[in-house]
Amino acid sequence: MTTESNLTKRQETQPEVTRSERLETPPVDIFENQNEILLVADMPGVTKEDLQVRVDKGVLVLEGKKTFEMPKGLLNCETEPCMYTRSFSLPETIDGDRISAKLELGVLTVHLPKRESVKPRQIQVTGG
């Protein structure tokens, strides 16, 4: 909910925390149809227990922790344990209470249903 006052008076609600882990931005696909917005994010190596999806003051926050062993004898290293994190501000049209999320094969799918009031509606025309 990006109202004007929100944009101009942005308050730091949380003090900055220093993290030892790396932060990574997961790649995301966004789709939309009449009923919902669909968000798909790649988070390989994240388990359901280490994943957090929350809505805070109209902002959808995705946080997934990827942990795995990093032994000494690495011959090739392209990924490291990290925290996947990304946030999106939700439009007013999204019904925050009915958001659902699913994690499958390291891919997070979030369904963001639209409010009934903004869905297209067919108006019945009656003859006089």
Partner: peptide, 21 residues
């Protein structure tokens, strides 16, 4: 993205393939 480890008697390759079964 891959990590390759030499474990002495074997190599372990870890590859991130999100969405693939």
């Amino acid at each position: 993205c891959t990590n390759l480890v030499d474990e002495g008697n074997e190599y372990i390759l870890r590859a991130e393939v999100p969405g693939l079964s």
